[in-house]
Design a protein around this nucleic acid. Sequence first.
DNA 1: TAGTGGTCTAGACCACTAG
DNA 2: TAGTGGTCTAGACCACTAG
Lengths: 236, 236
Amino acid sequence: MIGVPLYMHLANQIKEKINHRTLKPGDMLPSEHELAVEYNASRTTVRKGLSILFSEGFINPVPGKGYFVKEPEIDSYTLYFNERSCIENYTDEIRLLEVKLAPPDKLIQQLRDTKKSFVMIRWLIYSNKKPVAYDVKYLPYDRGKPIVEREIHYATIPEMVAKHQSLFSIKKTLRISAPKATPELKKLLDLGSDEPIILVEQKFLNAQDKLIGFGQLYMKGEYCNLVAVSSYRQTQ
Amino acid sequence: MIGVPLYMHLANQIKEKINHRTLKPGDMLPSEHELAVEYNASRTTVRKGLSILFSEGFINPVPGKGYFVKEPEIDSYTLYFNERSCIENYTDEIRLLEVKLAPPDKLIQQLRDTKKSFVMIRWLIYSNKKPVAYDVKYLPYDRGKPIVEREIHYATIPEMVAKHQSLFSIKKTLRISAPKATPELKKLLDLGSDEPIILVEQKFLNAQDKLIGFGQLYMKGEYCNLVAVSSYRQTQ
DNA sequence: TAGTGGTCTAGACCACTAG
DNA sequence: TAGTGGTCTAGACCACTAG
């Protein structure tokens, strides 16, 4: 145990007790004072160890009472997604279909809470000369700023808005579904009759709740890679 | 600003500077000492504020150098999933199809790193008297423990293993795909010719990397609800 | 060598809880 | 009233960085 700080040692020991069910959800931990005596540590050091367990979701402090073991967050997963990594391994070409002012779509009407104009950009993504995904993005259109740059390289929505926008404190939503293919989509992706597609819709709001980007990525089922893993809250 | 602790005030101010791009990714923050002078606070209090910004993913400390603003984690989402909430709103009945020892499936062979036996449990989930989802679960089979209890109520994998297992420090994986429907599936779910399905596969490993549960949930596309949101690391 | 963050102590005062 | 966690201070000693 050389080199392990005292607060980390304390955190690990308690974590192990929780994993081994010596401490169960709802149980109260020894008080900060008791732990300080047990580990021959100052109260400050004990608190540092406990704050780790708190930030990793193991315990909850209740002022005036004590620390309690939480219920584990079993339903929570972390999903990493962007338009490129979701299909990139398979692609060999990306073709820009169109850049234009967003049409008065039903969908876009709903999204447009501001009076801002939006640009619609459509791409087709190819693998082995065959289309495998169809990407539609809607981005706010500023008169002053040119949209030509957006035509040059394929990019994710965050990459496209990064120049005018901080990407901290952004609210994101991602919706995954398997819609029936429309005739247009069947033509674009050259779909077989039974061929399933996955649709991933992205929505980005800034800290002031203004829409800064919306995207729809339609992928042939077999080219789509969506994996989520344990929410791993590690402090160290 | 009454009632806001000093460390929180400091954290909020710096957070705002990062959001407003006064501080940009890669920039170095003032040193702990400088911040202590600026906020008329002790170094301990400054460190507490900075530790919040660290745990929320805004900054990274580099020993001997200083604190640096991180790149925002734009691709990371939080997804809440369990078998019930993903379709529950639509269901009116859940029928147990079968409980038996897991067959020597290709799939199961791969998963079985241990010599343990597995039970297979199959369910059909109905809405409006029509099947909308098909659920297959594989759970470790202990000779000593009865599996009858597993037949009675429909439950999620974590709920089923919770009695013999701590749910802390579990490794979970979730894979989302849209496979072509097999003839068996078409029959079970009474699928139309073009009707898309979504498959969510869950895998649970315990802290010792032993498989403690595997599940496949096939849903009719229109009954499936999969939404992920910003990974919101809030300390307060 | 001066400056940085990392660990740790021993204390103070506070609001809240529960008998 | 005794015990709990929450906030905060002023200090010590350390390893590491970079000129």
